[in-house]
Design a protein around this nucleic acid. Structure first.
Lengths: 352, 352
DNA sequence: CACTCGCGTGGATACGTTTTCAAGCATCTC
DNA sequence: GAGATGCTTGAAAACGTATCCACGCGAGTG
């Protein structure tokens, strides 16, 4: 329709140069008289500076990217809301991508963001260090949220397959330290899981299972640490991300290990699957099996019995991550660990 | 870090002009020899065309905007997933905003998108015609999803308060027809609600209530039409969007009208509130009160009893909307109405 | 053979902004 | 009073791309 007014139009209308207009609108110094005339002209023309021109000039896009595995998972919805709230408060855009938990799609989306010159990114990572190398190399400011990639065990020094791939262009091989030095905003999984396991132990449970999904390796590790010495690896099972696969994993777990009396679900999708599978197999919660689920989602209270959960502050997590990614550059971002809380409802009971 | 290669670098490396590079990469005509050399040079330099340059040149941003009220609402999560899936398939970015159901925030976000030169937008609108006027005026291609703004009743000719505000700049007042001519992708609310009401009627229910949220005016209207002649307006109540307000509305409804025996919730947040409120008041579902909820969300099955729902295809809705908004310009987009399905589970029973 | 036609090509321009730079002017200092 | 100093100002240059246009060349046509 009516093409938008440009800075040139404003300058002309105000009888000043474009530089002055830019300065006034960007908060630079200018005489009161000039400022007033520019402001008046801008208002009268309904002028809005084009982000395109500015971005091109500054060689970067404002705002930030956000990559999550699945918006259908309420927890990621909460996280996204947090990010959006922070972005909105500073008037910056957020470009969103859903990876489906697939490293390949994640890599594609990273490529897309690179093409858009989005240089700040908050991600719930699905891929490993190799997936993230291009983003890091391009100088993107990345903040991980909710989890850290490929960190199967946080404290063992596993062989770094990453050093090799950096050895292109005659660069010296990267120092063999940790493969990715990316700040992260995560929940205190270790404490959360430990509290849950202790709680279940206190109820008399001996055979406690862990039901995880992709990206829950850290939580599984925390679970191993919490149950202590003889860990029965058969009691630790993983789904691949889809609801179907989560259900299959839960159902398989219940059927193959009838001796288990409690399960810790590593996420709300897994918890959902556990409830469904238990019901299907005529296992009563909490009579036959106790259940504690990661993530406090609104519907946890609707189940009967209401679900005992390890609550992690999804919205805060997103908000903090957004703050970090916006502040980065000014200050070197430091990782943040958010507290979890065991909310006891009705899905855990004494061992039968 | 290492600044990205530009089209100029590629041209130089390939020994051709930048115009040729642009043509090759944009699918224009070029000789086989030139094409090959350009492609080789581009690959070798790891060249990615900058969206910034392109966008500025073409005076528009690729991709699309997406505005939803609340990503914590699982239905909007599904819708967003659909949009993202379509966008990903064509490699285009999606910039997301969450309005919180607030017209003011919606207007702010529209302004932000305008500033970004995002000219395609999918929105679950919260504001009215006045909120959307700036977007339309700027020539944005807008597609509404899930609902249509301010359409309290779809078929009455209410006085248009919109004509007046267009009468700026000496323009002739807009034709008094419908205030907004924006294509939409919505579910067949009328049929969905009608089916639900008939189902409840068949179970013997006479006093059926409707529990709505912001944007559910259309569904409320469909509800009125479905229950027929003497509609008891006291049985139609609205929350304002937050979970608390939904709970308050549900609780108030149950307490003020102990004679009601069934309620239709206009969305999953409202359904959640109804379940909670009923439990708090010691009303058994479905013994004391029957409940059917709009939206089929995964946790509907987890409730006990599992919730009978009016399913609407959230993901499809998003995907279709994204297709429409991408195709628009080529073809004049036409609105789409998607079917709903009554999924009978266990939350409805015969009138006590 | 001359002329036209079509195609491949590259130089130049424009998109809207920020930022640099030098110039203009008034005030201050010695 | 002359020089220095500070502030305001506008012209111009970049940012990376797509597209217009003019040019050259080979083939086809009269």
């Amino acid at each position: 329709m009516a093409k938008r007014a440009t800075i040139k139009d404003v300058a002309e209308a105000a009888g000043v140069g474009v530089a002055t207009v830019s300065r006034v609108l960007s908060g630079g110094s200018a005489s009161a008289a000039a400022r007033e005339r520019v402001l008046a002209a801008a208002a009268q023309l309904d002028y809005r500076p084009s982000a395109l021109g500015r971005n091109l000039r500054q060689r970067r896009t404002g705002g930030m990217g956000l990559l999550v595995p699945d918006l259908t998972d309420t927890f990621y919805g909460q996280l996204a809301e947090g990010v959006l709230a922070c972005a909105r408060s500073v008037g910056e855009p957020v470009v969103l991508g859903s990876t489906g938990g697939d490293p390949e799609q994640e890599a594609d989306l990273i490529g897309m963001l690179l093409e858009q010159s989005v240089d700040r990114l908050i991600a719930v990572p699905s891929g490993d260090a190799e997936t993230w190398a291009p983003a890091i190399r391009a100088g993107m400011i990345v903040i991980f949220a909710d989890r850290i990639p490929g960190q199967a065990s946080a404290d063992d020094t596993r062989p770094s397959a990453v050093g090799d791939l950096m050895a292109l262009d005659g660069l010296p091989p990267a120092p063999p330290a940790r493969p990715l030095d990316v700040p992260a905003v995560v929940a205190d999984d270790r404490a959360g899981i430990r509290t849950a396991v202790r709680y279940l132990r206190g109820l008399g449970h001996k055979r406690i299972a862990f039901l995880g999904g992709p990206g829950h390796e850290g939580r599984a590790h925390a679970f191993r640490a919490a149950v202590g010495a003889p860990v029965d690896e058969e009691l630790i099972v993983f789904g691949t991300g889809s609801r179907d696969s989560a259900y299959a994993a839960a159902s398989g777990l219940f059927q193959s290990r009838p001796d288990l009396s409690a399960v810790v679900a590593g996420g709300n999708v897994l918890g959902e699957a556990a409830v469904l599978a238990a019901r299907e197999l005529d296992l009563r919660v909490p009579k036959d099996v106790s259940l504690v689920m990661y993530d406090d989602v609104p519907w946890a209270e609707l189940c009967s019995p209401p679900l005992t959960v390890i609550a992690q502050p999804g919205r805060d997590m997103g908000y903090r991550a957004a703050e970090l990614v916006l502040r980065a550059g000014t200050r070197r971002a430091r990782s943040v660990v958010l507290p979890t809380e065991l909310i006891i409802r009705g899905s855990c009971g004494p061992r039968r």
